[in-house]
């Protein structure tokens, strides 16, 4: 539609676009919703303004004796003035909520990426441990799950062309997902005001074809190992393993197969173990104690960085009931490289 209009207008529309590019699976849904309400607004707004102006002009400068219509109210007018907006708004509510649920329901096959926000940069971590700063390179037609946390104040991860936005909070994980449908480069902004250089906290999202993305990964060698291998080193060096053993009489619960399971808490409630719960249990172990265990675990708040927390969580997620950890780790080749970083961490921990 807009392309059609553009054809008949001078170049000004090139400098004055009315809609941003639609570059994700959700973008068209959001735009349709917006355009639908814009159309409703335009029609209803025009009617109200036209009626008001008509009355104002038709009945202007009359003698007081000509005034009529002294009714205090008319049931039909009041009912219509309540019913129409109510129905229209509820329709918008239902439709808008459906789109919102689509934005929030993460597809199970989504590839997991991680982002750290800090004043004033975005650090992105690919599943293989590759890191980018302020640039985010992703493959097209692939659902991507992004787990995020902030190292200082609140930020917000915003890609207008994808119509997605998610606040990034210190001290907890938030998640978002999207699937790019167009190749190209798109703006990445921080949408939540975060201090001096807020306007410059952004970069470019580059969407590559599947093949180009593989080439990109092969060209850029990760400066550190995968989060999983880093996490395994930390799990040993921070001595997590001394309590979180397999034995039934261990002081801490076994972490094997715990991810995604519902566990009983000492408070009597239960919780599904996800990234956020694992992170919280490391920095603040007593917040949600597992039932049947003593509150012996010390807090690791301030002793591990957000990146190390992410490594640990990534590692714990790979532990399952059946076999050895290494089998789940697609990046075992990086082990030797990784042990150095792990040693330095254990000194600090």
């Amino acid at each position: 539609m807009i392309e059609l209009i553009k054809g008949y207008l001078p170049n000004i529309l090139d400098n004055l676009p009315l809609l941003p590019e639609q570059a994700s699976t959700i973008a068209a849904e959001v735009d349709l919703l917006t355009l639908a309400w814009t159309a409703i607004s335009f029609v209803s707004g025009t009617i109200v303004v036209a009626v008001a102006l008509y009355f104002g002009i038709r009945y202007r400068r009359r003698y007081a004796t000509q005034v009529g219509g002294h009714e205090t109210h008319a049931p039909a007018v009041e009912i219509v003035s309540m019913l129409i907006p109510f129905v229209a708004c509820m329709a918008m509510f239902v439709w808008g909520t459906k789109v919102f649920v689509d934005m929030r329901r993460i597809p199970p096959d989504a590839v997991e990426y991680f982002a750290f926000g800090k004043q004033w940069m975005w650090k992105i971590q690919h599943p293989n441990g590759l890191r980018e700063i302020n640039d985010f390179t992703i493959p097209v037609d692939t659902p991507i799950k992004l787990t995020m946390t902030s190292e200082d104040v609140i930020h917000s991860f915003f890609i207008p062309a994808f119509r997605v936005k998610q606040d990034v909070l210190p001290g907890r994980y938030t998640t978002m997902w999207f699937e790019a449908t167009e190749l190209g480069e798109f703006h990445l902004f921080c949408a939540e005001y975060c201090g001096s250089e807020h306007s410059y906290m952004g970069g470019t999202v580059t969407v590559l074809s599947q093949e180009d993305y593989q080439d990109f990964l092969n060209q850029e060698s990760p400066e550190r190992g995968s989060p999983v291998s880093g996490g395994r080193e930390l799990f040993t060096s921070l001595a997590c393993v001394t309590c979180h053993q397999e034995a039934d009489n261990a002081r801490g619960p076994s972490l094997r197969g715990v991810y995604g399971r519902e566990v009983q808490l000492a408070s009597g409630t239960s919780v599904v173990v996800d990234d956020a719960y694992l992170r919280e249990s490391i920095v603040n172990p007593r917040a949600k104690m597992r039932s049947g265990y003593m509150p012996l675990m010390p807090t690791f708040e301030g002793q591990v960085t957000e990146e190390q927390l992410h490594d640990l969580v990534s590692y714990i997620k790979t532990l399952d009931n059946t076999n050895d950890v290494a089998a789940n780790d697609d990046d075992s080749s990086d082990d030797s490289h990784d042990s150095e970083t792990a040693t330095s961490v254990s000194a600090g921990g």
């Binding site: 849904e29 959001v30 919703l33 917006t34 309400w37 708004c89 918008m92 509510f93 439709w95 808008g96 909520t97 459906k98 789109v99 919102f100 689509d102 934005m103 917000s156 915003f158 207008p160 119509r163 997605v164 936005k165 949408a191 939540e192 005001y193």
Partner: peptide
């Protein structure tokens, strides 16, 4: 107030 639109235009 519409959730599906607010996510995109919030803080803009």
């Amino acid at each position: 107030a519409t959730l599906g639109i607010d996510i995109h235009v919030h803080d803009t």
